[in-house]
Write a protein that binds this DNA or RNA. Structure first.
Lengths: 160, 160
DNA sequence: GAATTAATACTCGGATATACACTGTCCGAGTTCATCGGG
DNA sequence: CCCGATGAACTCGGACAGTGTATATCCGAGTATTAATTC
């Protein structure tokens, strides 16, 4: 039960896109190079972000990605769900129904207390992720000024 | 990012073992039959519960499993971690270190703000699971009396 | 009838097989921009 | 100098391979109970 690597990549990419000058795009190739991850596989994650409406892309030589919403409007949960999917972390297979002692043939429609507990825990996890945004992500990052400036220069060379 | 089926099985099995008369054992074979799951694979889950000290077993013809602690002392988290493992749901691969703009060659030792956020969310999930016990599981189960009695009879026939 | 031995039933652990998801790569189609050539 | 044609760079989507995990099964070793045997 571990999230895919793409989730980590997507979060870091959103952090990077948040630092772009207004309206500019950064290519997937550059995002991949900067983070040292395979370009084409990172592309899959970016495509999912795009499908979820968190990021927008442009084709062509000056193409690339940029955030589609203000940084305060994109939550961690948005990004995680876009990449990882929306399936609940607990899959109830209703083994109650296999019991030789069950009374009816059909379920009650309500989840059993075990499934409900797991769903609640899942919701606690999602709720925490929902409370964090890309904005808070930037606020929490405490990098040395030297590195921030170097990154800014690196990005500016590749902006389209 | 979905928990294994064994987690669901293990939770239901603990619920069942909690209803046993004091000191009695119920065989894995019976637990598997009752829940309609493969006996040998369920055995793996029970072995993990046993290794975690949540359940104890006896060999031989009268062998089987029973809870090793009072129902109030076994949490959902205990069971989930016993079966699923203790790995955190977010695996940080430190892609910060791949950046061409990083200042030092070695990490700071502290997780970045993104990893920290994911760890906090993971802890929120675990914290919720930690607050629930087998005792609360039984209290929350609202089965028809008819089924409870039928199950009790079914179990008594197989007790050793 | 009591003690010892053999048989049985069960747990436990290891080895193995299969299905599926994750990871990663490759290629073609379509789109946009830059460049080049003709008027 | 302007306009259209050509080429280049990029995104997007699908197809495919390798790896690891989840799922499931099988078998042998060890142990406790039960049955059988012996005295």
């Amino acid at each position: 039960m571990v999230l895919k690597n793409q989730v980590e990549w997507a979060l870091h990419c959103c952090s990077m896109l948040a630092g772009l000058p207004q309206g500019k795009y950064l290519a997937a190739k550059d995002l991949a190079e900067f983070h040292g991850v395979p370009k084409e596989y990172l592309g899959k994650a970016l495509q999912r972000l795009s499908a979820a409406g968190l990021v927008e892309s442009t084709l062509g030589p000056a193409g690339g990605y940029r955030l589609a919403k203000p940084v305060a409007a994109i939550t961690f949960l948005d990004i995680v769900e876009a990449v990882e999917g929306r399936r609940v972390t607990f899959a109830c297979t209703e083994i109650r129904m296999n019991s030789p002692c069950r009374v009816g043939k059909r379920g009650t429609g309500k989840p059993c207390s075990i499934a409900q507990a797991m769903y609640d825990a899942d919701e606690a996890w999602r709720s925490h992720l929902r409370s964090l945004t890309v904005e808070s992500m930037l606020a929490g990052a405490q990098l040395p000024k030297e590195q921030v400036d170097a990154t800014k220069r690196w990005v500016e060379q590749r902006l389209k």
